[in-house]
Simulated assay, not measured.
Amino acid sequence: MTRLKLADLADEKPVRLTIEVSARLHRELLAYATVLNGGDTKGAPAPERLIPPMIDRFIATDRSFTKSRRSAQLG
Rank of each mutant, 00 (worst) to 15 (best):
D62P: 05
D40G: 01
G43Y: 05
P52E: 06
M1G: 14
K13Y: 08
G39H: 07
N37Q: 08
V35W: 03
Y32D: 05
L9R: 06
A44W: 06
S64I: 11
R63F: 00
P45F: 02
A10L: 03
V21D: 02
D62W: 04
A46V: 09
T2Q: 12
G43A: 09
R24L: 11
L74E: 15
L50Q: 04
P53F: 06
A23S: 10
I59C: 12
V21R: 08
R16F: 10
S71V: 08
G75Q: 09
P53N: 04
R63P: 08
A10N: 03
S64N: 12
D8V: 14
R63W: 00
F65H: 14
A31H: 07
T41R: 15
T18P: 00
P45M: 02
D62N: 15
E28D: 15
G43M: 03
L6P: 02
E48T: 06
R70V: 01
L36S: 10
P45H: 03
P53Y: 06
M54L: 15
L29C: 03
S22Q: 02
Y32L: 15
L4I: 08
F65K: 07
L29R: 09
P47L: 06
R57T: 08
T34D: 09
G39K: 03
P45V: 05
S64H: 06
K5I: 10
G43H: 03
I51R: 02
L4V: 05
L50C: 02
L29K: 04
R24F: 09
V35N: 12
P14E: 00
V35Y: 08
S71Q: 13
